[in-house]
């Protein structure tokens, strides 16, 4: 039988209490929740390929930091930004350093308008990096704010 997660059951119960208002007796709530859970389970069983999904993440205002390092080569910047353009990611800021032969670049990008998921953009950037022998790290900006700002 398809599983309904604990958090979903809790949400159903909360909504039932709200809708029932003054009729929210223990028996009534139980009845509504049971009926809803049964219906949801039947729906889930009719689409067996669908597993319980992690709640959807909004992409609005999603800023991501791409860092790449390796030996300097011609075309690195073009390669990375080309990949970003192809996935419709907006480059907001860019900073790079070349120390002797060693190359480091950091790009701040906005992925809000990309049709692709974070995971897929990340994978494409890593693959692009591999062509230039670059190590590419892709992380949401929030982690840096959380670690480096009080």
């Amino acid at each position: 039988m398809a599983q309904i997660s604990e958090s979903e059951i809790r949400r159903i119960a909360e909504q039932a209490i709200e809708k029932l208002g003054e009729h929210a007796t223990k028996a009534n709530i139980e009845k509504v929740v049971h009926e809803t859970v049964d219906r949801l389970q039947n729906e889930k069983m009719s689409t067996p390929s669908e597993t319980v999904k992690i709640p959807h993440q909004h992409k609005s205002g999603e800023r991501v930091i791409v860092t790449a390092f390796g030996k300097n080569k011609i075309g690195i910047l073009a390669g990375l930004t080309g990949c970003l353009a192809a996935t419709n990611c907006d480059v907001i800021d860019l900073s790079q350093k070349i120390l002797k032969e060693f190359f480091t670049i950091m790009l701040l990008i906005d992925i809000t308008h990309s049709a692709e998921t974070f995971e897929s953009i990340k994978q494409k950037l890593i693959e692009t990096g591999e062509k230039f022998d670059l190590k590419v790290v892709v992380q949401h900006e929030q982690i840096f704010k959380s670690m480096h700002r009080i």
């Binding site: 930091i65 701040l108 840096f144």
Partner: peptide, 16 residues
């Protein structure tokens, strides 16, 4: 730019 390159590199050094 709010986050500096040095801070990003420090974070990556910590994890990698």
């Amino acid at each position: 730019m709010q986050i500096e390159l040095a801070e990003i590199l420090e974070t990556i050094r910590m994890t990698e």
